[in-house]
């Protein structure tokens, strides 16, 4: 990952996307290998790493019994943003994500898209260097998805933040990401821009490239041994 870029992490269900995010955000200890984020090791410099990152989890993590403003404010205190700066940042971000008018409403009255926007706004409150978005558009309608990515692109321009995102929607990765990494079974199978991946696999769409890289079988968490052998073999061949 390079500073300032949008980096998409693609992979089938259970490929290890969320696990990777959890390790990079200090929530899980890796069983082997090493991690580096902004020159720091998340396993040993937990607090410093946490200060540098913003995370939007796959599952919502807002307090729905509090207002949008209160959710933002708590986050600001947890990340040691001074009072004055906190107020200003909250206002800027809530306006940017079009939630300013609803700041005094309880989050439980928000729609799915609004909650997502609030989570991203909150993740940016402490001006992180890297923003992790774990499937931020999951379960959103096309309008909200579209709007979400417009916001994320705007962020790059205004905040200069590096974005690390995972998604299942190929068209989104194609549109938003500067570079894409495909992982499967916990291994990186390919990295490059969307165009490079297409070229590499000799396909004309990112979706086809993705399938060429990870196989077409649908797998459940517990695939049969033979299935796993086949997939391991495929990964090895690359």
């Amino acid at each position: 990952m390079r500073p300032g870029e949008s980096f998409a992490f693609l992979g089938p269900n259970g490929a290890g996307k969320t696990t990777t995010i959890k390790m990079l955000t200090t929530l899980l200890h890796p069983t082997s290998g090493s991690l580096e984020l902004d020159g720091l090791d998340p396993t040993t410099h937990r607090t410093e790493v946490r200060r540098r990152i913003g995370v939007v989890f796959q599952d919502p993590s807002l307090d729905s019994e509090l207002t949008a403003w209160e959710n933002m404010d708590i986050h600001g205190v947890l990340y040691h943003v001074p009072r004055q700066a906190r107020r200003e940042r909250c206002e800027v971000l809530l306006r940017m994500f079009e939630l300013w008018e609803r700041r005094a409403d309880l989050v439980k009255t928000f729609s799915g898209g609004m909650k997502r926007r609030l989570e991203i706004a909150r993740g940016l409150l402490h001006t992180p260097k890297v923003l992790f978005l774990d499937e931020p558009t999951l379960g959103l309608d096309p309008q909200s998805r579209n709007q979400m990515w417009t916001h994320v692109r705007k962020l790059k321009a205004t905040e200069g933040v590096t974005v690390f995102l995972t998604t299942h929607y190929m068209d989104e990765a194609d549109r938003v990401a500067d570079r894409i990494a495909v992982i499967d079974h916990g291994r990186l199978v390919a990295t490059g821009s969307a165009a490079e991946l297409k070229q590499q696999t000799g396909t004309d769409s990112l979706e086809a490239a993705f399938l060429a890289l990870t196989g077409t079988t649908i797998r459940d968490e517990s695939a049969t041994a033979a299935d796993q052998m086949r997939q391991v073999a495929r990964v090895w061949r690359r």
Partner: peptide, 16 residues
């Protein structure tokens, strides 16, 4: 409940 609705995680990743 906080665990169920995710708010617990928000506090656990904070640098505190």
């Amino acid at each position: 409940w906080d665990r169920q609705f995710g708010f617990l995680k928000e506090t656990l990743v904070a640098p505190v």
